[in-house]
Simulated assay, not measured.
Amino acid sequence: MSFFDDLPEAPAGLREPQLSRPAWSGPPSDELPGMVPSGGFVLRGPNAVVALKAVEVFSTGCILDLVWSVRRSEESDSGWLEVMERGFERPGLPGILIGVALPDGRKAFAGDPSMVEGSLDIPGPFLVPREGGGSSADDEQAEGSAKYWLWPRPAEGDLQIVAKWDDAGLPEGSLIVPAEPLARAREEVRTYWSE
């Protein structure tokens, strides 16, 4: 006889409750986003760029798809090795500060210290790094990509993506994502399942 023989069986058809993921942590898992495909340069210098490839718009927020690239100029082999190592030292954008100015005047920053556990009862906005992306490098160029979840979805109006990359000598710059394509993308959001 086992200790567990007297354990009652679960009623048929009963499912364990599933933990729901907070909306600030990422996009809904059952939506096809609307797209703002035409991006542009957030920062652009003689040997380094940060660009927005696209914005994926969901019912609750947006994913910003960013890429960065730096090309070799006068660096020695050891100097270039340092540039490449900085590009791989952490996931995402190496030493690049990223932020978003929302139409209502609020701001969100990647790596915002208020995102520490225990303080997530504040209303946001948040700019949360997403899984994925990566980096690659060779003797002439280092490049990578990163995605950020912007929550909550911004109100109607222009969205301003702001960046600064001190290591590459690029001062603060920005790119405006116009209100019109964002509004069209909001209308294109579709759920997977019919209600």
Rank of each mutant, 00 (worst) to 15 (best):
P22R: 07
P8T: 10
E82A: 14
S135D: 05
Q160W: 01
G92T: 07
T60C: 07
S69K: 09
V83P: 01
S194C: 01
G169Q: 08
P103V: 09
L102M: 11
K164A: 15
V57L: 09
F126S: 06
V177N: 05
V70T: 15
P94W: 06
R190K: 07
S174W: 04
E75G: 06
R153N: 02
V189Y: 08
I161K: 00
P154S: 06
F88A: 15
G133S: 07
R130A: 15
S76R: 01
P171V: 08
P125W: 13
G118R: 05
L93W: 02
G157Q: 04
P94V: 11
V42G: 03
P171A: 12
G26F: 13
V67K: 01
P8G: 11
P181Y: 05
S145L: 05
A137H: 06
E172V: 11
G92L: 08
D112A: 13
L93A: 14
Q18R: 10
F88I: 11
L14K: 00
S136N: 11
A137D: 06
L52D: 10
Q160C: 08
G45M: 12
S174V: 04
V177C: 08
E75H: 12
R86A: 15
W68T: 10
F126R: 07
G39W: 02
S59A: 15
C62V: 09
G169R: 05
A183I: 06
V50M: 08
E89C: 05
I96M: 08
P46F: 13
V162S: 03
E195V: 07
G105M: 11
V70S: 10
L97P: 00
A23H: 07
F109S: 02
A23L: 14
R153C: 07
R86W: 01
S78F: 00
K53G: 12
P152W: 12
G13V: 04
K107W: 14
G45K: 08
G118K: 05
E156Q: 07
P178N: 07
M115T: 14
E85C: 06
R90V: 09
G105I: 09
L32I: 15
L159Y: 03
V128P: 00
W149K: 01
A179Q: 01
P103T: 04
P27M: 14
W151G: 00
D158L: 12
E74K: 02
L14F: 08
F41P: 03
P103M: 05
G95P: 01
W151N: 05
D30M: 11
E74D: 14
I161S: 03
S135C: 07
G87L: 05
V55I: 13
W24Q: 10
L32S: 13
A23W: 08
W165G: 12
G34L: 11
S119C: 11
L159P: 04
R184G: 08
W80H: 03
P46D: 15
R190V: 14
C62L: 14
E188D: 15
A155K: 01
C62A: 12
D138V: 09
W24T: 04
I122G: 13
E82T: 12
